[in-house]
Design a protein around this nucleic acid. Structure first.
Lengths: 139, 139
DNA sequence: CTATTTGCAAACCCTTTGCGCTGGT
DNA sequence: ACCAGCGCAAAGGGTTTGCAAATAG
């Protein structure tokens, strides 16, 4: 079962994912990894991503319909997607208390959950409050 | 502004969506609608779906990375995706209290949220407890 | 040396778009 | 009659797969 070999490709992919400021889509991950490893192929990224997920080293989140990936080991958290600038932030406090094994009304046994909040990040919220429209002043 | 015409296709698509027990993917919706309207084309489903969303008659949810659609007017609710049978159920009690306008720690203004629970539906949970493997009887 | 891994390219979804014809109003 | 809407089929974007060459152990 020496199945997981240490290759340059995997090394780079893992590193890119760990250094990312947030979740990345496969194409984004590919692009970033190719900076270091120009010849890297699409398939390798997907295969490595699948492998990492099976081994629990990474997991997928779904933001606005796009599957994105992030490195594990940052603890349980969710995401906030800004409707203004489109950036995705990680939330470190979880708005729901649903540990594995919780039984939801009706007999649904919860094993995992995914929460995504949509709205305005601090910056966009501030812009909205201070400058409702371009050219409009507060006076 | 007589933009929205009443056609047999739209009638069927709307009906299928309203009668669905949960959210449907576009291909699923197409298949179900084709039972009634065999000649229905793929593009029509997507175009109608887009139209319905713009008019607020339907909205999209993202389950396991797949965009799925459901008829509006069932109130605020979320989904439970069964890891056993793959079916999706609608949950009528919301595990989070985050009305529009809630300000999340850090200054994030919440406008909307999406919650998906993953686990075992009542049936799959029962099977798991009572029949670990096919062909095994209880006696 | 042997089995795993890679890169390429083709294959596969799913979704969108262009176009001539049908059909609602 | 007019033009929105339809079905078909091609195009597009992301993800998966087959295979020979490359490489880790």
């Amino acid at each position: 079962m020496s199945t997981a070999r240490q290759t340059r490709q995997r090394e780079v992919i893992v590193q890119v994912l760990q250094q990312a400021e947030g979740p990345l889509s496969a194409p984004e991950l590919l692009a970033r990894a190719q900076v270091t490893l120009p010849g890297l192929g699409t398939a390798t990224v997907y295969r490595t991503l699948k492998l990492m997920q099976e081994q629990g080293e990474a997991h997928a989140v779904h933001l606005d319909g796009e599957p994105m990936y992030e490195s594990s080991g940052r603890g349980h958290h969710h995401h906030f997607s800004c409707n203004g600038c489109g950036r995705v932030f990680s939330l470190h406090s979880c708005p729901v208390a649903l540990p594995r094994g919780t039984v939801y009304p009706g007999g649904f046994v919860v094993e995992d959950h995914e929460v995504t909040l949509y709205g305005r990040c601090p910056q966009c919220a501030a812009q909205q409050a201070q400058a409702p429209a371009p050219g409009v002043t507060a006076g």
